[in-house]
Design a protein around this nucleic acid. Structure first.
Lengths: 187, 187, 187, 187
DNA sequence: CATGAATGAGTCTTCATTCAT
DNA sequence: GATGAATGAAGACTCATTCAT
């Protein structure tokens, strides 16, 4: 009868892994419990419901990505430098937390309405950046399209890397950042 | 949009609607039957299982989009013209069949492994195009990144339109096509 | 695989029996299903929840007793005759539906608050009678106490018969009616 | 009403309150522990099981009421006086320990069989009294019915007071005692 | 004595699927 | 082809009880 010190963390970890691999509904509490190495009932000492686990994961990781992005956006450096750093930060987050990133996307698909209840979403940070660039006349494409382009490209790149179609090699971030920067700032 | 030809079609139509709105697992056979206006048992006259409905929907729509794209790719016209037409075709498909497009994406998230069993996926058509453009030296960005950029941008644009963040106005397709074309062909 | 014509009735019957014998919470859906001869899932084709079974039983029997009592109360006969008939009706109901009567009492103990949502409760019929008798000056004890006396005595008599302490012999109703009538109409 | 002497007493107090308010099965060990201000495990330092708490409460209060009643029954005073005192004692117990009285009744409904294992139940004291009165020719109604009448009336009066239908005013006991005494001793 | 995490056996409920009609 | 009652295998959640600390 093991007594873990950090069961709550382990539950979140296992849940994230399973949710991102199989889907939320298709992952059972039993699956999670088994992965953690405890019994189903024990889960409920740490979370009141499966849904709370789901919400906790979403808000945790969505906010974490937002924080990382917004701190770059708010740096007092040249906008172009910040853009390059932003792309790097975004992709690093994806590759460092592939399960979290997939889960965030899945959550958006399955709980579109619920997403609106959360604040500080990653796209808010990026939108702020596009806003600034557009107002300063540096970004030429209107900010919504610039957002779609940057987020869409980075997200799809990540998925293609995951799918084995793109190889993750050094310099990928710079390559993408450069292409994207030109794309949104062309004269 | 076909109108209630026969029961089998109606089932697929209702299922697609519900799957895209609520998710696959969260839509029951009863939900579908009720939406069609028949009873649960009747569904099984037309499909051997819920899973068959899911697979049928995926292959139908993934293939339909592929067909539309490949027919443009294989046209004997100037590559730039084909690119503009490709963007238009892709976005038209999304906006004409938003449920189908959302469902295809959802399927990719929940059944990543299964997707590999299908042939003629939309990305294959686009990949073929990028391949040609890259070999001809017109597309400068390597084809995988060009694919990520185009697909990602278009997909994300659709989602932002759905989310009410981008407005769908006339000229949107041209605007995007232009930006994307420049982005992947910059010298 | 038997197909019953009146499964819903059988469920109510089995549930009433088990609830009155063991209590509501201590009777499981499985117990009921087993008693009916079906599986647990089948219960839910007829009732949306266990609670609906409970409520249905309460309202059915509470109302049935009320109907029987009120029809006597509203007869156009001598008040004393009506009283005798009322006692007989009440006891007959108890002895004919001992499970229902026990269940009604149990429900009162466990769901006191919920009882207030129901209309046409047995006590309302009796209260109406006491009211009339008191206003006419025939019943001397104030109506609330008369109600307590009559209901309390009859209920307790039933329970003592059930417990084997009182024997249910012919004339019991008249004996009780006589004593109670004297008790509430003494000069 | 004793005030928090020791943990064991506090547990019994909280359990009695919760059982009478919500029911036995619907009150959890955690509920009790929280009400006492300790944790679940601590309960088991004082009682081997939830059931032991239940039994302890029943025997404690059933016996307490029995003791109070029997001591009146066995007084060497005029039978009529003792009857009046008996009614007062019974009602006082109800009003002073409403939770205990409700719990005793609930226990009777849910554990009818088990009740037979207990000795010195309240009704035994009253039965002894009725027996004496009947043998002496003072009580004219046979003792079982007299018991049903007295217990039923008092119990129902208590419940109607609890339900807000009868007001508990000074003299209520005498009023009831008088009516009941006449009822069981009429010529 | 007390804590509270964990167990494990339920309990209610859901739902894809079957099948008698 | 259609119906809808029934099955049966989960699934989420509960809770009395145990036990390491």
């Amino acid at each position: 009868m093991p007594r873990h010190q950090n069961t709550k963390e382990k539950i979140l970890e296992s849940a994230l892994k399973l949710f991102s691999e199989k889907g939320i509904r298709e992952t059972t509490i039993k699956d999670i419990a088994k992965d953690v190495g405890i019994t189903e009932g024990a889960i409920y000492r740490h979370f009141v419901s499966k849904d709370q686990i789901v919400s906790t994961l979403f808000s945790t990781y969505a906010e974490r990505l937002y924080e990382e992005l917004i701190s770059v956006v708010e740096e007092k450096t040249l906008i172009e430098n910040r853009f390059f750093k932003l792309v790097k930060t975004f992709l690093n987050f994806c590759f460092d937390n592939p399960q979290a990133f997939k889960f965030i996307n899945l959550f958006h698909y399955l709980r579109a309405e619920e997403v609106k209840n959360f604040q500080n979403l990653p796209k808010d940070a990026l939108m702020k950046f596009m806003d600034e660039g557009f107002k300063k006349g540096i970004i030429k494409v209107r900010r919504e399209l610039a957002l779609a382009m940057v987020v869409g490209t980075l997200e799809r790149t990540f998925l293609l890397v995951e799918g084995g179609i793109i190889e993750r090699e050094a310099g990928l971030e710079e390559e993408l950042a450069e292409v994207l920067w030109k794309a949104i700032t062309y004269q």
